[in-house]
């Protein structure tokens, strides 16, 4: 008999299970991310060689007007984009989820399937679809509003500096409302029927039952939906790129972090692309997302236990 204490044989099987997957994950995801963070501290000279530059890239981005103006503009726009999602997408998602979960609702599955459908399609497709629908050339929306007697309010929203960003946000809300709806719906289903029955017997009306019983119980899910929305919004790119192009017009009014990152890295028209400045923008995006996730973990995750059934 061999002594087990003499050291187990090398666990080849663990290496077998972890090896291939982790090799790809570390080399294509973890390493590039870390390398990007590293690159953000370097300067690239015209011959392509890299030199350590300390925080110069960040000071440029945050304080040098040429860079900081677009940067703060994109940050602000991205915040607006996010808040519109929080204020419109998630409440609508919540409302739909609550309605879908009403007891004995017929066709609930059909509604669910159909409302979720746009979420499945590519943002690119959705972008084009709405561009067509809102186009004054085609006039579908205009006609529609004319029928409602609202024709005076129609405008080429996507083309105006004042309304383009909000319009884009609404298009995105329209597409992704299915996600909060589905997740909140699942959370509502997991609340035992007996709890609702108990609240009815206790004399709570439907509003009270919702605000005192159901809402607190789905709060963790709402927190999760919020952080998912946050990450997705600060990582968004396709919709703006599809509808407004990399320049995020008019006059950068729809520029968000994703498009800024793209332009900084690749360059566009007059602007020359920069590897290290791109890395710096990505690093700042990373910090913003990290901050969001940290806040979420701090405020929500800690309390989730409270609500466990």
């Amino acid at each position: 008999m061999t002594k087990t204490s003499a050291g187990k044989p090398f666990p080849w099987h663990i290496l077998f299970f972890l090896g291939p997957g982790l090799l790809i994950y570390f080399s294509v995801s973890v390493y590039p991310l870390l390398d990007t963070l590293r690159l953000s501290f370097f300067h690239e000279s015209s011959d392509g060689s890299l030199a350590f530059a300390g925080l110069a890239n960040f000071t440029k981005l945050l304080f040098d007007v040429v860079w900081s103006e677009p940067f703060w503009n994109a940050t602000w726009n991205n915040l607006v984009f996010f808040f519109i999602h929080m204020l419109v997408q998630n409440p609508i998602g919540l409302l739909l989820a609550v309605l879908l979960s009403s007891p004995k609702l017929r066709l609930s599955g059909t509604y669910r399937t159909l409302i979720f459908m746009p979420t499945m399609l590519s943002v690119v497709i959705i972008g084009f679809v709405w561009q067509l629908l809102l186009s004054p050339l085609w006039g579908i929306t205009e006609n529609f509003m004319w029928n409602l007697g609202l024709e005076d309010y129609f405008d080429a929203w996507l083309g105006k500096e004042s309304s383009a960003l909000v319009t884009l946000a609404f298009i995105s809300v329209w597409q992704f409302v299915g996600i909060p709806m589905m997740l909140i719906y699942a959370a509502l289903l997991s609340i035992p029927d007996e709890l609702s029955d108990a609240s009815v017997v206790d004399g709570a009306n439907p509003w009270q039952a919702f605000f005192y019983i159901k809402l607190p119980l789905i709060l963790p899910t709402i927190g999760m939906v919020s952080i998912l929305t946050f990450v997705a919004n600060f990582n968004a790119f396709e919709l703006v790129y599809t509808i407004k192009g990399a320049l995020a017009g008019p006059n950068y009014s729809t520029d968000i972090m994703g498009t800024l990152f793209y332009r900084t890295f690749f360059g566009f028209q007059l602007q020359e692309g920069s590897l290290t400045m791109g890395a710096a923008v990505a690093t700042l995006m990373f910090l913003v997302i990290l901050l969001g996730v940290a806040l979420y973990l701090f405020f929500f995750q800690r309390r989730i236990k409270r609500f466990q059934l």
Binding site: E194, L195, A198, S199, Y212, L217, R306, Q308, L309
Partner: peptide, 8 residues
């Protein structure tokens, strides 16, 4: 049967 206490 399951008591149906409000967990929060």
């Amino acid at each position: 049967q399951s008591y149906a206490l409000y967990p929060h």
